[in-house]
Design a protein around this nucleic acid. Structure first.
Lengths: 356, 356
DNA sequence: CGGATGCACTAAACCGGTCTAGCTCTGGCA
DNA sequence: TGCCAGAGCTAGACCGGTTTAGTGCATCCG
């Protein structure tokens, strides 16, 4: 005989299928004595629910979906995703909810997967990442009627909830710090320009520069890859009046930039200060360790998962959420311009966070 | 009205449910004319199959499972997993097969998930990683009757298939290279000792050392973390007769070790050569770039996915597979001991692979 | 010309659960 | 004593597909 079904249990326990269903799902309709007996029989026969049969009746899929539209090869490079995944898993697995993951080529394919999984009842909700400037996806998910957590910026949506970090504040804190220790020419290696957070960071830098009266503050868009990060750094450092500080939108680019500086004989932080918008092992293990914005991506993943499970459960609109503004962790890749610090000296700017 | 069902299509097209099912699945039983009409109606009504209903009849789940038993927080750190995931996705998404991913605490929990997903018909097969010395998982999967691809070493199994890299050959090629350029004292920062591949690498180093008559060749087990990598490096470099070359089992540890060397004023590669057993952006972007074993983890992921889909389809035992032996990519972190090379000089050991 | 064959299609069972309508029995109360 | 409420349980419909047995009809063959 194959796997036991509730019919088998019913026969064994001498009751009807319905009674078994009631007992196994802890709902009224059977006496405590009968319930206990049914549970015992089910246990003995090692019964497990058949998720497909349950889903047919419209129950939960106990899974959520994450579709990422990027070339599969680049996913492995970006620590952000793996950390986000880690955080998601930490919460999801605690609730025995699985993650349906798929990597596709572009947004059109992504939407196609949304439709398919929705119609196939594969998932109870979605996580949307890489929010773009005019993004079609929230509307599609709204139409499909599936709850979703959208990562990347404020906005409206039916059964949706937004979670974002305050990129503007974060960028301002970086620029304020650099200006405070004397930098007047700052460059910014930005990410893909059609992402919303890239736009916000570029605008924040421009505004801060104007307010502080900086000599120069330029944003250079890239594709987030180490190759473009290195190339753009080389270009910037080759100019006659080169920037004294560069802010990188990702740690991978920052580390690549650090390598280029070394090659070109530009000392860090003596002649060039480097700040990464993303903190990870990467930023800590290179030499010198990088001053970086400590965004806890793992915690972000946890929060996203928690919020999604909430709106899936309640089927009511949850609360949009802004993650705490990340704090700048000052390490050894930044110093006042033109100063070669001694071994232990780090700029004493006490109002900024320092690692313990 | 909610989503259309085949009953709706049948009514609309004036045929029976059975005819619709035949038509939609491309099987004989309807004329070409009727089939075309049914397909047109289905298209018009935007019909999609309900996966749960299909699964009830015993069909495919069109998903495979990957359960990882490690602390969720560490997954994000290890480039290996994200690259493996990328490779898996590249193949799976081409076949419209989803990946069910779950991170759990330990092997016991992992086995529990196997049982649950198997009994719930959630997946068609599993991918098993981190094979251990006496690993209970292959036997469990065998008993569950689900096909699986086991990553990590040769072995037997019913509907299972093994894929592994030749760690022994790889380690030998590293040691041969180091010995050829004159190193006699080599240390090895190994990974977790209960993993099979760790054991194989340790044994290979010991054998090579004996064969080549090296003065010293020691393997130090670690937990793969950058912290332990750094600590162990510090210990090794503090010894009176320190090694002239260190082989790191992961790129994260190698980069951490590079940082420690810098801090302690030990020049790389002048006083210490560094080899990483794992290649990734990480190894390329630090300074100096690391000599590393180029294992194409992305390609490994692709192969695993391909093999799994094959045995799922055929339900017959596939062929075990050994991945091509990784080649050593010589970069600038290695040189003959005690030699400080000029800017462009790299040891001219032509029989080893050099990046283009 | 009669029977066998095969094609196109229908009706209904089936997968393994959930859920509702309804039945029986017991106890409480007027 | 008669009536009603409610607890405990059963029978069976139902979810949306797949699959099998069976039917009607045209065609082929001897």
């Amino acid at each position: 005989m194959g796997r036991p079904t509730i019919a088998d249990i019913a026969r064994q326990a001498g009751v009807s299928k319905g009674a078994v269903s009631f007992a196994l799902n802890g709902r009224p309709g059977v006496s405590e004595a009968t319930r206990a007996r049914i549970l015992r029989v089910a246990e003995e026969m090692n019964w497990r629910p058949h998720s497909a049969a349950r889903a047919l009746g419209g129950a939960r899929a106990d899974a959520v979906g994450l579709v990422i539209a990027r070339p599969a090869r680049t996913i492995g490079v970006e620590p952000f995703f793996s950390q986000l995944l880690s955080g998601l898993q930490a919460v999801l697995s605690a609730g025995s909810v699985a993650l349906h993951l798929m990597v596709v080529e572009d947004t059109a394919a992504e939407i196609e997967v949304y439709r398919r999984w929705a119609s196939e009842h594969r998932v109870d909700g979605f996580i949307v990442v890489d929010l773009q400037v005019r993004d079609p996806r929230p509307a599609v998910l709204d139409a499909l009627g599936l709850p979703a957590v959208v990562l990347g910026g404020p906005g409206k949506g039916g059964n949706q909830l937004r979670i974002w970090a305050d990129d503007r504040e974060a960028m301002l804190s970086i620029v304020d710090y650099l200006a405070a220790i004397g930098h007047r020419r700052i460059a910014h290696l930005a990410g893909l320009p059609h992402f919303q957070h890239t736009q916000r960071r570029i605008r924040a830098l421009r505004d801060a520069s104007r307010r502080l009266g900086l000599e120069e503050a330029v944003s250079v868009p890239t594709d987030f890859s180490d190759a473009e990060g290195a190339a753009a750094t080389r270009t910037l450092l080759s100019r006659p009046r080169r920037p004294t500080a560069i802010v990188y939108d990702s740690d991978v680019m920052a580390v690549a930039g650090l390598g280029v500086a070394g090659e070109m004989g530009v000392s860090v932080p003596g002649e060039l200060s480097i700040v990464s918008f993303d903190d990870s092992v990467l930023a800590r293990i290179v030499h010198p360790p990088l001053t970086a914005l400590s965004r806890d991506t793992f915690a972000l993943g946890e929060q996203v998962a928690r919020s999604l499970l909430e709106i899936v459960d309640e089927a009511g609109p949850g609360r949009d959420l802004q993650m705490p503004t990340p704090r700048l962790t000052v390490r050894e890749s930044t110093s006042p311009p033109g100063v070669v610090p001694s071994a232990s000296a780090v700029p004493p700017v006490s109002r900024f966070h320092r690692p313990g």
